[in-house]
Structures are given as structure tokens and as C-alpha cells.
Nucleic acid binder design. Structure first.
Lengths: 344, 344
DNA sequence: TTAGTTTGTGCAAACGTTTGCACAAACTAA
DNA sequence: TTAGTTTGTGCAAACGTTTGCACAAACTAA
């Protein structure tokens, strides 16, 4: 296989065409000061030599790399995969490449991710923080450097940074109100780490919906964990020991919910007649379980697109900084078999 | 918020320390020709000024970007997400960043992805081709340019390029043999596009397992599609019209299988007693359906790690090209309720 | 002492672009 | 004719690194 040692550069084109590199550079970027005839010669030659611009060099000279960085806790699972899809679609349209990093829910890894992205000179960064991020120095550093930064879903709460979130409070409120409408009287909650905005807000929605409908919040019916499927199983096991027995569960995510569902079935209880279930995230598997799981949809792709749009705006604004923006998307409750006790 | 205009560069350090940029550069890279005293001065100053190397500049000068590119059909679903996780782990350890592109199963997008990665000067590319890639010019171009290239899972079959695949044939063979052992006599197949190595090999495994056990291959029991859940439903509907009725299904992926499962249930047939099911991919949801789905595990993370290791080897080898390598991973059949007719 | 080696540092070019400025040639307006 | 403008191109510096080569100073061995 013949390996071509040398990729054509602008100066190769220039030499073969008897033009200066500056003229060739301008012709390639379709600068109006170059005659049509010259442009055509340059373009033809570029095609002939399979010329491909060296983005690295351009990036160095222009001070922008046309690359965006993303830091997410993990890519598996429906939610982040879809958010990334939304981000990628829009970013590519705008001519940006994407660098995706997973923190694997570890602050230390998140810190390294951020550093790697900064070193790679990305033009902007999108972040959804890990379950355990409580110290934000590495993120402050991004701001300090003047690199545009947008949070989505799991955010660092600060008026100084832009963010796109779902109205998690409303989602929790809607889900629990729905359970109450379906006749549930003792609704438990499987919650997540309360320093995370999403978990806190969903819990708050749960609490307020109870109160609004005249039910007292019973701390014994609230169980906090890290929301893995295993956590859901164990949490449910603990909650089921309460007497009188619960008749509804609202979980902070669907992974915990599906764990809870397994435990409920294992105990021989019927869903939704004995225990009605509702969760959060609208994972793919929600429609594959039996019964199907009621869940709050998070409008993932829209969240991704909105976040990247904010970021692109900030990048476009450049030095004349624009005020931080906060976008709140409205959730949709998808009602399925796991919570439907009454006929429609 | 005070925006620092200027990031410290090597020459800033040099100026403040009264050293030349070359000395500073060498000190930072811990070159043995620099005295320990000088190194210490440089490192201290670097910390003081929050110096961060500009990878772009280094990449331009050194001719390598320390970035790897990945092109996958899509990131949602268990399989690619886990492969990417494996790739990322190893790549980060080796000091490489990752640029991830989704083709969304479109050749045109795949072509653009490749071009974007080449322009970004990645040091190597990992590819799993789209469902519809039959023309490989864009991939040949990568080789022509001398950029290391490794395929995984869905590959361009060529002795000239490295690849990591599962033994899909064996996986299909094992799954179907298992169904036969469980007493199935008329096993249908939901297959994928036959120009794709994975689909062809799984189908071949199906065919050979039947033959080996003395069953004739009945073309009426084979249905090809693009393997979406909807395809699975429709394919199953068509297959169920065959008389005498089938009593087992082997699907080329779990998405199609879960669709098929819905249709089987809808027809009032019992799983696995009337129809036993086995699929491919070991998706997360396989353990959440009822009954759980038997499936061939693809050793995703290992596949990712192996692929990136091949790529890193090629990059390390540089000009003295190493011979293309093909790695075949052995699959594991995970037997679950959907196929278990006999007691253990 | 001298010649040779080691140690530590600096000069300058290079990677492939982009862009401010300069300027010649051709045109335009009087 | 002349002065001014437009059109098209080129020079050269810059982005921030890395690295081959040179060389002074300090040491080493006789």
C-alpha cells in the first residue's frame, strides 16, 4: 500500500500555482478581494491535490478550535445518550466537533475531564455534574479562564452560569398528583442525593403535591440512595416494612423504580392495584416491563439542543459577554400501566 | 467577573524567569538536560501562573494531536455505549482524547464524520459502519492518508485493515443449538441486512446449527429487516402466519426480539412454552421483560478496549507499518426465561 | 598545564494557517 | 494629462509549541 508521506498544504498549492500562500488562503476562504479566476484555479488545484485544511493550524492562529467539550456522568442509559444526540446534531450543523467525556460519576474523573478539555482548547463546555460533585473549583476555573460554560440537567446552582434544566419540581408534583388521583393514600419516595438540584426538586415536588392534596409528609416513607437498580430494590424492601403498608411509589429515576418494581412483585403485591408506581426519565425499558412504567419525560433532545444553542450564542458573543441565561423546560408525564388503577 | 485576557504561555514563563523558551519547554517536559534547580524554578512559576500547555500548538508542531476519533451508528442502546466506555477508559489512560461521531445509520453522515475527524487531525480512527454502508471510499481514503484505522463489530471486510469482532457465527450457532436442546423443532430467524458481517454470520450460525442437528432450513421461517422494534413486531406477525406454527425464534438483535415478543404475547401464545425466544446483544432491558430474554452477550467493553489497543499499537508503530490484525472475541450465551422450557 | 567530556542553556527554524498592511496595476473622473 | 479609487496580490508576522544544533562553562583525566 503506497503511503503518501506528504499531505498537501496551502504552500504546496501556492507553489504549484505561482501564488503566495496568503492569496491561496484567501481564495480558499472565498475572500472577496480575490478574483474569480484565481479562486477557480485554487479550487481546482485543491481538489487535484486532495487538499484538506489543517484545523489545528487554523485553530492555533485564530484562537478557536471549533470544538466543543461535553462532560456527562455516563453515556449509557437513554437520557444522556439522547441529550448528546441533540447536542451533536446542532453542533455539527454549526460546524463544531464534539469531544465527549464521561466522569463515571466520579468527581476526580470530572476534574480530569475538564482539564483535558481546557488543554484541548475547546471553545466551550457543556456539563452535567456527577452524583458526588459538591466542590466546584474545577468548574469555576473554566469561568475564570473565560471559556463559555453551560450546565444542563444536573447543574451547579449559580446565577453566574447559564443552564438548561427540566422543571423537575413540576415533574415530581405532576407524578405524585397523578398517583393521588388514582387513589393512592400512602405514597413513598425513592429519592437521590439532595445536594443535586434534580433530586432535591423532584423530592420537593413530591412533598408539595402531598401537602396540596391534604396528606402529611411521612419521613418514614422517604428513602434516599444513589438510585441504582440495586438501590431501588433495597430501598423498596425497607419501605415495605412500614405499617400500614404503602400503596404508591414515586421514584427519582426509572432505574431505581424498576428495582423497586422487582421487589414489589417478589413480595407478591400487584401493580398497580396494591402498589402504583411512577418514575422519572422515560427510559427505553419503561415500555418493556410488565406493566409498563409511568414516567416523567425529560425532553432530552430538546434539552441538548437548547444547551448547545446557549453555548453557541456565548461563543458568538465573544468578548462582549452576555448575561447568563436559565432555561426551564416543561416535563410531560407519560401515564402507563404501572400507575393506572382507574379506567379512563 | 474579572476576565483574564491572557493565558500564560511558555514565553511568559521564560520572560519572568529570564530563561529561553526552549529551556522552559524542556523543563516542563522533564528533559534530562535541564538541571534540577532550573526545573524546580520553572515548575513553581508554572503553578503560580496557572500555566496550561496549549495542546493545539504542540500537536501542530509534533504532527500528532493525541486525539482519537470514533464513528458509530448511534450511541443509544447498551452495546455502543459500553464499547465507547471501554474505549474511553483505555484511551484516557494512554493520554488520548476522544472525538465521538454518530452516523445515525446514514452513509452520508458517516462520510461527513470521517472527513471532520480527518480535518481535526486525529491520530487514529475507530469505526463501526452504518447499516447501509456498502461503498467504502471514505474509509479507503483514511487508509490512503496513512491514518491508523480499526474497525469493530460492524466491519468493512478486508485483509488490509485491522478489526475486532465477536464470533457472531458461534453466537448464532450457540443460541439456536440451545433452542433445539430446549425442544424447539421449528425455529424462525429474524435477520438483518446480509451485507453486514454481523447479520450474515449470525444467520449462518443459525443455518448451520439447524443443519447440524438434522433440521432443514426453511426459507419461509426466515425474515429479513432492519431490526427495529417495529420491524420485529411486523416480522413476527408475518412469521406467525406460517403453518405449522413455529415454536422458537432466534433474532439478530434484542430490539427486534422484544418487538417479536410483544407480537407473540398479543397473539396469546405463551413464552417459552409455545414459542421460545433468543436474541443477540444482551441489552439492559433483557432482564426487565417478562419473561427475561435469553441473549448472546457481546463483551462490549472488552471489544472497545481491544480495538483501541490495536489502534494505539498502530499509532505507536508509526511509519514502520504493522500487519493488520483481526481479533475475534468469543461470545457467551446468557440463558434466561424466554427460552428455558426444561427445568435445570 | 592541555585536551576532551559533560552539563546546562539558548538560537532559530519549523509545524500550517490567518491577516494587517503595503503596493502595483488598472481603472475612473475630471 | 493628473489625481484618486478600485482591484488583486504579496510580505511578513503571528498563534505556542518542539527540537536540531551550537556553544560556553565546568568538570575530568592525563
Amino acid at each position: 500500500m503506497p503511503v503518501p508521506i506528504h499531505r498537501a498544504s496551502i504552500s504546496d498549492l501556492a507553489a504549484q500555482l505561482n501564488l503566495s500562500v496568503s492569496t491561496v488562503s484567501r481564495a480558499l476562504s472565498n475572500n472577496s478581494r480575490i478574483s474569480e479566476a484565481t479562486k477557480k484555479r485554487v479550487w481546482d488545484k485543491a481538489r487535484e491535490l486532495h487538499y484538506q485544511p489543517n484545523h489545528l493550524a487554523a485553530a492555533l492562529r485564530k484562537g478557536r478550535s471549533n470544538t466543543l467539550g461535553i462532560v456527562i456522568p455516563h453515556i449509557d442509559g437513554q437520557f444522556f445518550a439522547l441529550v448528546v444526540k441533540g447536542i451533536e446534531t446542532l453542533a455539527n450543523q454549526a460546524g463544531f466537533n464534539l469531544m465527549i467525556c464521561q466522569s463515571n460519576e466520579k468527581v476526580e474523573q470530572e476534574r480530569k475531564n475538564i482539564e483535558a478539555l481546557l488543554n484541548a482548547q475547546v471553545d466551550g463546555i457543556l456539563v452535567s455534574i456527577s452524583l458526588y460533585t459538591q466542590d466546584f473549583q474545577h468548574l469555576e476555573e473554566v469561568r475564570r479562564r473565560g471559556i463559555p460554560l453551560v450546565f444542563f440537567d444536573r447543574i451547579m446552582e449559580s446565577p453566574l452560569t447559564s443552564a438548561v434544566v427540566l422543571d423537575d419540581y413540576q415533574g415530581g408534583y405532576d407524578a405524585v398528583s397523578h398517583l393521588i388521583e388514582q387513589g393512592c393514600q400512602r405514597i413513598a419516595h425513592l429519592g437521590g442525593p439532595q445536594h443535586l438540584n434534580i433530586c432535591r426538586n423532584r423530592y420537593q415536588g413530591y412533598a408539595d403535591a402531598l401537602q396540596k392534596h391534604g396528606y402529611a409528609l411521612n419521613p418514614a416513607l422517604v428513602h434516599f440512595s444513589d438510585l441504582s437498580m440495586q438501590d431501588g430494590r433495597e430501598g423498596m424492601q425497607a419501605l415495605l416494612r412500614q405499617v400500614p403498608i404503602l400503596d404508591g411509589v414515586f421514584a427519582c429515576n426509572d432505574l431505581a423504580l424498576v428495582g423497586a418494581m422487582q421487589m414489589v412483585k417478589q413480595q407478591g403485591l400487584r401493580i398497580p392495584q396494591d402498589v402504583a408506581l411512577a418514575g422519572f426519565s422515560n427510559e427505553l425499558f419503561d415500555s418493556l416491563t410488565e406493566p409498563m412504567l409511568t414516567s416523567v419525560d425529560q425532553r432530552c433532545e430538546e434539552m441538548g439542543k437548547t444547551a448547545v444553542q446557549l453555548l453557541l450564542d456565548m461563543i458568538a458573543a465573544g468578548d462582549q459577554e452576555i448575561a447568563p441565561r436559565h432555561v426551564v423546560l416543561q416535563p410531560t408525564l407519560l401515564i402507563r400501566g404501572s400507575s393506572q388503577r382507574k379506567l379512563l
